[in-house]
């Protein structure tokens, strides 16, 4: 789930840097020093989980887990992913300095969307909770691969076929991530429910709260 350096065009790179910078600024504002070790370790945790090869049919895929990261960290997913992606660029040369912005945007925007999806989907039974967690994992990777193909297609019109292929090849991974996220959330609900954000109901104040993202707030 990385764009290598040298492929996407300047407008896409600049958009990525802009969105990633804004998101990271918001994330850092909402992340206080008491939770920074937690965010760092979660970021390391996702770095490690991303190395697991999971069999899917004849091939195997690696987990992205940006949905789960988003649910746990909220806006702090932005700085956590910037750091994780920078380390991946330095360790394995997946992505690079110039594509750090666009790669962060593609993974972190869906992560934050997943947080809001998870928090605001009003479900109470276990079954429906699992379904909503599946939806978060599925759309986390789904939106990320949409962003990935979009950035390819916007860079160069001749990349359309490659972009379509990239998107199609991620469809099985979306289902895989959905399943893993659903099981993961149900595991955390049983073992360490304090990690998960509290469910909220959509109300007018809640909608208003969405627009006050610059408010300093602890991650939960």
């Amino acid at each position: 789930m990385h764009i290598a350096e040298g492929i996407v065009s300047a407008p896409v790179l600049v958009t990525g840097i802009g969105v990633a910078t804004a998101g990271t600024a918001i994330g850092l504002r909402r992340l206080d020093y008491n939770h920074i070790a937690e965010a760092g370790i979660l970021s390391a945790c996702f770095f490690v989980a991303g190395l697991i090869q999971i069999p899917i049919g004849p091939a195997s895929a690696h987990l992205v887990l940006n949905g789960l990261l988003g649910i746990l960290l909220g806006w702090a997913a932005f700085p956590a992913l910037v750091v994780g992606l920078l380390l991946q660029a330095l360790f394995f040369q997946f992505g690079g300095l110039t594509t750090l912005g666009i790669n962060t945007m593609n993974l972190a925007v869906p992560a934050v969307i997943c947080r809001y999806l998870y928090v605001y989907i009003p479900v109470s039974t276990r079954k429906w909770k699992a379904v909503s967690a599946f939806l978060c994992g599925f759309s986390g990777v789904g939106l990320a691969s949409l962003g990935l193909s979009g950035s390819l297609a916007f860079s160069e019109e001749n990349f359309a076929e490659v972009a379509a292929l990239v998107f199609l090849s991620h469809i099985p991974i979306m289902f895989l991530e959905g399943i893993i996220t659903a099981f993961g959330i149900s595991f955390l609900t049983k073992v360490e429910p304090g990690l998960l954000p509290a469910k909220k109901t959509i109300s007018v104040p809640a909608l208003f709260q969405f627009f006050t993202i610059f408010r300093k707030k602890e991650i939960s």
């Binding site: 920074i36 070790a37 970021s43 750091v83 380390l87």
Partner: peptide
Amino acid sequence: KLVVLLLFTYR
């Protein structure tokens, strides 16, 4: 904060 986060993650 970002630098501290980077160092923790690496560690």
